[in-house]
Simulated scan of single mutants.
Amino acid sequence: MNPNPRQIVGAAIVDSLAQPTLLLAARRTAPEQFAGMWEFPGGKVDPGESDLQALHRELREELGVDVRLGSEIEAPTENGWPLNEHAVMRVWVAEVSQGTPAALQDHDLLRWMPLEDATQLGELGWIPADRPILDALLQALTVRR
């Protein structure tokens, strides 16, 4: 693993931080190897930005929404979830505070999926690096109930 991996941030957007029942999944349009696969929306942290500033910027650019953040999904490393040898991603649970999610950039389809149906969620065809994050999210939400 690169000693200084690229920091990526993402959001597991749910319908309610207090009583989550739905998760927003986003289908990628690029790059080619991930086109048509599902992911947590987000993106790269730019120089001079904090992780949270980048997350809010990315969600406005990609989905046209502002969010209220909940807890970070606990990752296996202090920098986040390994995506590949060059990048790691930190992911927060979030709910929309302003706007209606729309596929504005990097995605061609958004879908609200029921959290209680892990099988249906898993069958979406997630980007492989996002799948363990989905599993950790579902585990964390199960523990809370």
Rank of each mutant, 00 (worst) to 15 (best):
M1C: 07
M1H: 11
M1T: 13
N2V: 02
N2Q: 14
P3H: 04
N4C: 04
P5F: 04
Q7P: 14
I8K: 07
V9F: 06
A11L: 07
I13R: 04
I13K: 01
V14P: 03
D15T: 07
D15R: 06
D15K: 07
L17I: 06
A18P: 00
A18K: 14
Q19W: 04
Q19M: 12
P20N: 09
L24G: 03
L24H: 01
A26H: 02
A26Q: 09
A26F: 00
R27Q: 15
R28W: 12
T29Y: 01
F34L: 15
F34Y: 14
G36W: 04
M37Q: 15
W38F: 04
F40A: 03
P41E: 06
G42K: 10
G42P: 03
G43P: 05
K44Q: 13
K44T: 15
V45A: 05
P47S: 15
E49F: 07
E49K: 10
E49S: 06
S50P: 09
L52P: 00
A54Q: 05
A54L: 03
L55Q: 07
H56P: 00
R57L: 09
E58K: 13
L59G: 03
L59H: 09
L59K: 08
L59A: 08
R60C: 05
E61L: 14
E61W: 13
L69R: 12
L69M: 13
G70M: 06
S71Q: 15
S71Y: 12
E72Q: 15
E72K: 13
E72G: 10
I73R: 03
E74S: 15
A75F: 03
A75C: 11
P76D: 08
P76R: 07
P76I: 12
P76V: 10
T77C: 09
E78A: 15
N79T: 12
G80E: 08
P82F: 11
L83F: 10
N84S: 14
E85K: 07
E85Y: 01
H86K: 10
V88Q: 15
M89I: 14
M89W: 00
M89E: 15
V93W: 01
A94K: 08
A94E: 07
A94F: 07
V96F: 06
V96P: 08
V96I: 14
S97V: 10
S97T: 15
G99E: 06
T100P: 00
A102H: 07
A103G: 02
L104S: 01
Q105F: 12
D106E: 14
D106C: 05
D106V: 04
D106M: 10
W112K: 07
W112A: 09
M113I: 12
P114C: 02
L115T: 01
L115I: 04
E116I: 06
D117S: 11
A118G: 06
G122H: 03
G122L: 08
E123F: 01
L124A: 10
L124D: 07
G125D: 12
G125Q: 11
W126Q: 05
I127G: 02
P128F: 00
D130I: 03
D130E: 11
D130M: 13
I133P: 01
I133C: 05
L134N: 01
D135C: 02
A136R: 13
A136N: 03
L137R: 08
A140M: 14
R144H: 15
